[in-house]
Design a protein around this nucleic acid. Structure first.
Lengths: 240, 240, 240, 240
DNA sequence: GATGAATGAGCCTTCATTCAT
DNA sequence: GATGAATGAAGGCTCATTCAT
């Protein structure tokens, strides 16, 4: 077998694997995990049922494969990129949020259900004590938020009494719940604006009002000083 | 049939219905909806399989029955009571949060999964016409939060730029996500304290900063007074 | 439900169970356990596949059901009867052998394979350490041979140095192996005569040669009589 | 290709074939024919699945290959050797029995199951035309016993009324059944002694009691003669 | 009203076998 | 010759639901 042939062969394999993952993702997202039979997945991917099991030993592993790809190819890379290119804490959180929501909303607009349902239910039961590969993936992804927060606190952008865990829940809980309710009503229409509406009060709760960084703060400072001068002036005047 | 007999008969029916609901709730909560067969439910309830279908028509309706009871007998009554007895906005939110979380956590500590999974997945598909009775139940329950917020704004406890919908997501999204992650790690242990940890930053983001607690507020006050004096002075000068 | 109806109902159930067992027995015997699908069994029994599993939780238990019935309704009762009505040891062994062989040979002439294969293979693996119900059945059945031998020894019909276990192997091993080879060649034709041909040398090896049937026995008789005469003669002489 | 290269190539092929046979034998013996997939065999042999089929065409033929090798390399050669080196009939039977039993018991101590199951079940069905190569192998192997018996009869060691076929069943049936029951209880422990315990009564049933070999016989003869003399004497006396 | 036997479609998975490389 | 990806039929089994009793 020539190198060329081998490469082509490998490409075909990967293409097939991708095809199965795509089909399964779409079907799981559309109809749910339990309502999607392996037969349907095979048919949708244009392969035989046996092939599905050839690539992913079981329906469960197929699901894990989907999530794995999702984390490794979508969630994590962009999250890392965001932290590398944006330094402003507020901007970082906003970008992370947008990324998270839009990623979940892609893929038939319901990829998110996957996580909710599958992770929430089946894995939590089946892999209760063992450290499933999913936990690692999730941990690394969540780490990006943790880092943004940590650095935000260091810079004085965020309050310094924020605990990591509640913060994650605040952030992801709000976003995913909000994504669900919004999409239930309007689909992806106006999703970005809605995320901003969610982030606004969140930011208020997290940001450090002592920080001079924001325009309001700077303005306040100037006002403060101006005020002091005014007060002194007016006092002098009154006395005179 | 005497009235007595009729009453006793009705009571027996209701007792049976309750028994089935109890069994199903526990099983669904423990093993999940799909992993619980109607046979198991019947066995756990001490009735025949046919009887389950006599009372609930289908497994789906049985699930709806569970949720219906949950809203009507657990969630809603206590929420209403909270609003009736607590007037303080902060206290109200806290009580609603505690109530929500502990209700979900009860029933084998996993009733919550029910909602997440079933509502999130199957009903959203089956009842896509958006007319499911569940929507009404949910709307009425969410209404309690809405009311607490509305009145909080009216009293000046909360910012007046808060929109209803994002706020719901902020509140319930954070709580349910937090409940899930917390219970995954520690079960119900320390759940109350954790809810407080979640609420703290949330409150910061929602409450009205007119309160004299924050520096900005104090400054504003001073500015306001300075302004008044300046205005008075300038008026005097103009007159002179 | 009247008593009559209940009885009729029970009868129908038992008839169905019997029907499934019959169909499965015939198919297993004809094609072997692994080559017979539960679908085929259901079809042959005229019921749905689900019904088969309704009665016998699994294919394995169905097999156990067959064997159980075989032991309880065929093998054991007649074996007990044989020991109750025949006292002669040789006759007992012959009757037990005939009964064993013809029972195995009935039921599509291959019921025996069932035991060989299924017991020999699957149960020995699956139920290796647990005392399967099958072991009890088999023990009770084998007990009949044990009793015939024990009593045969007590009466002096059999050698008194016979151990139980090797004897069982000698008896059942020979019969089943012989049954198999004979049926492979001639079917059930001349089976009885063949069993006799098997028993003949077996009996030689087991029976007590003191018995008057054998030359030694005859000799002994003669010796005894001769002795008596000698004794009488010698007595006479002593008196004279 | 040089002769050397060709030879080496052939050796490699044979080594491969042997490897597959070894792996399959062990797996079949351990887990049974049906529970062993060709995939497992290939993996255990360190070759690809396709290769297995290259060498053996089908799983069935692979099994035949195992049995063929077993007869040709294990059973037959040693049986022939036994008859060539041992002349004493009793010793021959004992050696053949030991050889048979220990051969079956080798190979993970369960090779025997192979025969029982596979031969008993599937081949009898698949090769119903009675032309399977297995029959020839088996016939030639059984021939060794036949020869030992024939010559035993000629020498007067065995009764002369023994038929060939029942005798085979007596011999192999007892041994295999006994092997199975013994191994079920004690594994290979004490197997030799048990075979002796099986052979003892068997021998009694087969050996020629006319043979002057045993003490009892000798004594009986003397007694017989003594008896005759006594009888004659006593008769004479009575007449006188 | 209550029962539970009966259903049969459908599920996930396995497997011997084929064939292009 | 050797590979192993691909196949698809078949397997045992489950389950919500129906209906005669």
């Amino acid at each position: 077998m020539t190198d060329n042939a081998r490469r082509r062969s490998r490409e075909r394999l990967e293409e097939r694997e991708r095809g199965i993952l795509d089909a399964a993702t779409k079907l799981f997202a559309t109809a749910g995990f339990h309502a999607t039979s392996t037969r349907k997945i095979a048919a949708a991917a244009g392969v035989s049922e046996g092939t599905v099991f050839h690539y992913f030993g079981s329906k469960n592993e197929l699901m894990l494969g989907i999530l794995d790809r999702f984390y490794n190819e979508v969630l994590n890379p962009r999250a890392a990129e965001i932290l590398d290119t944006i330094m402003d804490t507020r901007g970082r959180l906003r970008a992370l949020a947008m990324h998270h929501v839009s990623s979940l909303a892609a893929d038939n607009a319901l990829m998110m259900r996957l996580l909710q349902v599958y992770v929430g239910v089946d894995l939590e039961i089946l892999g209760q004590d063992k450290q499933s590969p999913l936990r690692d993936l999730n941990r690394s992804y969540v780490g990006h938020l943790d880092r943004a927060v940590r650095e935000g606190v260091e810079r004085g952008d965020l309050r310094n009494n924020l605990e990591t865990r509640p913060l994650r829940d605040l952030f992801f809980g709000t976003l995913e719940y909000g994504l669900r309710t919004h999409m239930y009503r309007h689909g992806t229409e106006g999703l970005d604006a809605y995320v901003d509406a969610l982030l606004q009060p969140l930011w208020e709760g997290l940001s450090n009002s002592d920080s001079p960084a924001t325009p309001t703060e700077l303005l306040t400072e100037r006002l403060e000083k101006a005020c002091e001068r005014l007060e002194r002036t007016s006092e002098r005047w009154e006395k005179s």
